[in-house]
């Protein structure tokens, strides 16, 4: 009896404060994940039906509108550069010595056979700008105390209408994310691991994306050497720098 009343009490308190708390949680998540600018090296491992492939690249980005990526390996991709400004994307490849603009419809295609589309990669808006959050409950995940929050889109032009997020209650970093269709169908699952503390924030350095409708082992995205608030020369974000 005592247990039950405690539970009811907890539920009442939770629901009263949840929306405010949830927004607070989301704000803290944003504070960890989004940044004015960042530089990082990353490794993408794509699991295909015939084995896996790893691509390494270095990226520079400012805010949510500009980013520049250079591929470092494998040999085939080496020297390939990508420039994103607002909603436009250009690719330069040394083999063709061409700057090619990737237009709207291509952005929805998957990047190099991964479970990510260009659009997924280009979505850099703050979560608080897109979603309203509410707390669903608390749980343990990978021995960490987590909040489970639901995110419901508050704007129209968003890829995933709802998300369910497992946020580390202490560090405010998402550890797991489920992306849903409007109908409630689970579309993608992202698992974040290897959380590090860098430049005053907690950041996941391993993310595993899995398209839940498709068979396969998903795509692994590993970040190494991430730095925030670095001086990035403005001329990097120009088409001229693609050819350099």
């Amino acid at each position: 009896m005592k247990k039950i009343s405690v539970f009811i009490l907890a539920a009442i308190i939770l629901s009263a404060f949840s929306n405010q708390d949830a927004s607070e949680i989301l704000r803290k998540v944003d504070a960890n994940l989004s940044s004015e600018n960042r530089v990082f090296e990353s490794t993408i491992t794509i699991h295909g039906r015939r084995g896996s492939r790893t691509i390494t690249s270095k990226s520079w980005s400012v805010g949510d509108t500009k980013s520049f990526t250079e591929y470092l390996s494998p040999a085939r991709e080496q020297g390939t550069k990508m420039l994103k400004l607002e909603n436009q994307l250009w690719i330069y490849t040394p083999t063709t010595d061409r700057i090619i603009q990737i237009s709207g419809h291509m952005l929805r295609q998957s990047v190099m056979g991964s479970d990510l589309s260009y659009e997924d990669m280009m979505e850099d808006r703050k979560l608080t700008e897109i979603y309203n959050a509410s707390i669903l409950g608390r749980d343990m995940l990978d021995n960490r105390d987590v909040y489970i929050i639901t995110l419901l889109a508050k704007v129209e032009d968003v890829a995933y209408h709802t998300q369910k997020m497992w946020v580390d209650a202490d560090r405010f970093v998402p550890l797991k994310q489920e992306l849903f269709a409007k109908s409630g169908q689970l579309l993608k699952r992202v698992e974040m691991k290897d959380i590090i503390y860098v430049d005053g924030r907690w950041f996941p350095t391993t993310m595993v994306y899995k398209d839940m409708l498709k068979q396969g082992d998903g795509t692994e995205f590993k970040i190494s050497g991430i730095r925030f608030n670095q001086p990035i020369p403005e001329h990097l974000f120009s088409k001229a720098s693609l050819k350099q």
Binding site: E119, A153, E156, D157, V158, A159, Y160, H161, L179, A181, K182, S183, Q185, L187, L213
Partner: peptide
Amino acid sequence: DKSGTFDAA
């Protein structure tokens, strides 16, 4: 849908 939001059924 027209705004680009994923949906599935």
